[in-house]
């Protein structure tokens, strides 16, 4: 696949998307928004893929919007609708586990991108920065929707308003990062984590993902109905049968993701 601003790698049922503009700390350009969207669609369609990893080439994860593309003529609403919204919707709609392997700074919309992932794994010296208020803007790229759902309103307010960088250990304590790995172990540990995702009953995972985030704004009755749908679908899956069988036979299940 020929991309200009990202690299797309497929290996052992894992699709890895590298944001690949290291000279500008992987800042977003319109092209990059489009290529990430396309890469997610590609990985979603590819039946062999059971986990998607997002990471940055070079020192940074993603430094946010490339401000070279923003000037006083910019209509910020149009900008978001055309560039970010398709990308964020595509990431939310992919039924496969998405890992942000945060290898360095994730700032502004770059942090937003990491928030859109299902799991954040951080290198020990990586940082999150909500940079928006520093330039007189509100956090965008889904930030204000996802962050309070992940860490609660009070902490989300601190992160977005005070704008202090969140170092990896703090991110883990907040519940933003699932794991923090040392510089030398990072790649290997991310891969191990991805293997763990690959081994999941992917259908059940996708149902969990489909309903859990939205459960925070649906009423209990609606959610319970959705839970019944999810369990009915999971209950008909091959992996459920395998899980039951493995339990009876006292062995580890071998899930195929269907």
């Amino acid at each position: 696949m020929n991309f200009e601003t990202i690299l797309y790698e497929k290996n052992n049922k894992i699709a890895t998307i590298y944001l690949n503009r290291p000279a500008s700390y992987n800042a977003f350009t319109q092209k990059m928004n489009q290529e990430i969207t396309y890469a997610f669609k590609l990985a979603t369609k590819d039946e062999e893929i059971r986990c998607i990893v997002l990471t940055g080439s070079g020192k940074a994860f993603c430094s946010g919007q490339d401000l070279a593309e923003v000037d006083e003529q910019t209509n910020h609403a149009t900008f978001l609708r055309e560039r970010y919204h398709p990308m964020l919707q595509t990431i939310k709609q992919t039924p496969k586990p998405v890992i942000a392997a945060v290898n360095g700074i994730a700032a502004g919309a770059g942090m937003g991108l990491a928030l859109a992932a299902d799991f954040r794994l951080m290198k020990e010296n990586a940082k999150f920065v909500s940079a928006f208020m520093n330039i007189g803007l509100v956090p965008d790229s889904g930030f204000l929707y996802i962050l309070p759902r992940l860490i609660g309103y009070a902490k989300a307010l601190e992160v977005t308003v005070l704008g202090k960088p969140i170092v990896a250990e703090e991110a883990k304590a907040l519940g933003l990062a699932t794991e923090v790995y040392s510089e030398q172990d990072f790649l290997e540990q991310v891969e191990n984590f991805a293997f763990q995702m690959v081994a999941l009953p992917t259908k059940a995972f996708s149902l969990l993902k489909r309903y859990m985030l939205d459960s925070m704004h649906t009423d209990y009755g609606t959610f319970l109905e959705q839970e019944a749908y999810a369990q009915r679908i999971a209950g008909m899956s091959t992996d459920h049968l395998e899980g039951l069988q493995a339990f009876v036979e006292k062995r580890n299940p071998n899930f195929i993701g269907k």
């Binding site: 149902l207 999810a230 679908i233």
Partner: peptide
């Protein structure tokens, strides 16, 4: 409104 897998059911 139903999960797409279950509309017919």
């Amino acid at each position: 409104l139903v999960a797409s897998e279950l509309v017919e059911e």
